[in-house]
Design a protein around this nucleic acid. Structure first.
Lengths: 77, 77
DNA sequence: TCCATATTTGACATATTTGACAAGTCAAAT
DNA sequence: ATTTGACTTGTCAAATATGTCAAATATGGA
């Protein structure tokens, strides 16, 4: 699988979870430990950046799911 | 959870899978698509670096497991 | 429409991953 | 003791993730 396709899938999953929790990007940023910005959330959700595992971990915690759940895509990759 | 703890868990999981497949780091690098170096495998396995999701994905493919399986730790995180 | 909120995008600086190579460590075998 | 294999560690440069701010664009409601 292409890098860009992987990043799109990851991003869509983040967005899907965020919206299902009724959170805006601003809300999500407010719940994330440490520094982060809607800029980065936007870039991750749109697949424009290749996030590190720790960044994804922090996002998963803010979304009240485990990292494994965050990465549990519908598509098998 | 601390960043360093997360990275150690991820690294141990990579190492555990690699060894269970009877591969050396050199073997693994040989199976990974695209450029990579045993230096990075070593750093990831020891938790000294915070790999991107795409790097972990490439490693998972070389280990013949899905990304989700690679990140399926014993410890719930 | 207008207004407020939400998101995206660009520009820039900083931090860190990654790739590459060299050198070091360590254990095992001969 | 030397060699061999596996892994670690250091350094360097390049690419890129991240952080920050500002501006532009989209979205939805009154």
């Amino acid at each position: 699988m292409e890098k860009s396709d992987l990043l799109k899938i990851v991003g869509k999953r983040v967005q899907e979870l965020r919206i299902s929790k009724g959170l805006t990007q601003v809300d999500l940023v407010g719940k994330i430990e440490g520094e982060i910005d809607t800029t980065n959330i936007s870039r991750i959700e749109s697949g424009r950046t290749n996030p590190t595992i720790f960044t994804l971990y922090r996002i998963s915690k803010a979304l009240d799911v485990s990292l494994i759940e965050l990465l549990n895509f519908k598509t098998e990759i």
